[in-house]
C-alpha cells in the first residue's frame, strides 16, 4: 500500500500505512470534533499522556487501542451524514487490517503486557466509561490524531 512504513513497537515490527487513515481523519476531523462539546475531558491524553509510555509497553498499548477502537468506538459513531459514515468505515477497515498484523506479534509473544501498560489502558477505559457510549465513542474518534501522532 502507498506509504507503507515499518513501525517498531518494542520487539514487534509491523509494516503499515497511516496515509489512508490520516487522509480519512483529516477529512472528518472538524465535523467529528464539533460533535464533542466536552473540552475538559480526554479519553487518550489525560491524566496520563500516551507519550509517557515506555518503549517496551508500546506494543501492548497499541494492541489494546486497536481493539478498543474496533470494538468500542467505530460501531457507535453513526452520523446522519453518509459522507462522514463512509470515511469512518474506511478508517475502521484500516484498523481491522492493522489489528490483524499486530496480532501476529501477540502470538509470537512480542507484545507482552506489563503492569504499567495495563494500568494505562484501564485509565483509558475509565475515561471512556465515564461518558455515555455515543459521547465517549465520538470523543474517542475525535482524538484519533492523538493516537496517530503518538504511533508515528
Amino acid at each position: 500500500t502507498a506509504g507503507n512504513r515499518i513501525f517498531h513497537f518494542g520487539q514487534c515490527r509491523v509494516s503499515m500505512s497511516m496515509t489512508e487513515i490520516r487522509l480519512g481523519f483529516t477529512a472528518i476531523k472538524a465535523n467529528i470534533q464539533a460533535r464533542d462539546p466536552i473540552r475538559t475531558l480526554s479519553i487518550l491524553s489525560h491524566p496520563h499522556s500516551l507519550h509517557k509510555v515506555k518503549s517496551s509497553d508500546r506494543c501492548c498499548i497499541t494492541h489494546h487501542l486497536f481493539n478498543f477502537y474496533v470494538d468500542k468506538v467505530f460501531k457507535h459513531c453513526k452520523t446522519e451524514d453518509s459522507y462522514i459514515n463512509r470515511k469512518i468505515s474506511s478508517i475502521a477497515n484500516s484498523f481491522l487490517s492493522m489489528k490483524r498484523k499486530l496480532r501476529q506479534c501477540h502470538e509470537q509473544n512480542k507484545c507482552m503486557c506489563e503492569e504499567e501498560s495495563t494500568e494505562k489502558f484501564k485509565q483509558i477505559l475509565a475515561n471512556y466509561e465515564g461518558l455515555n457510549v455515543t459521547s465517549a465513542a465520538m470523543k474517542s474518534l475525535g482524538e484519533l490524531d492523538i493516537l496517530l501522532d503518538w504511533m508515528e
Binding site: 473540552r39 475538559t40 480526554s42 491524553s45 489525560h46
Partner: peptide
C-alpha cells in the same frame, strides 16, 4: 485558552 482534556 485551554489545554484539551484539562479542566480550566
Amino acid at each position: 485558552y485551554l489545554v484539551y482534556g484539562v479542566g480550566k
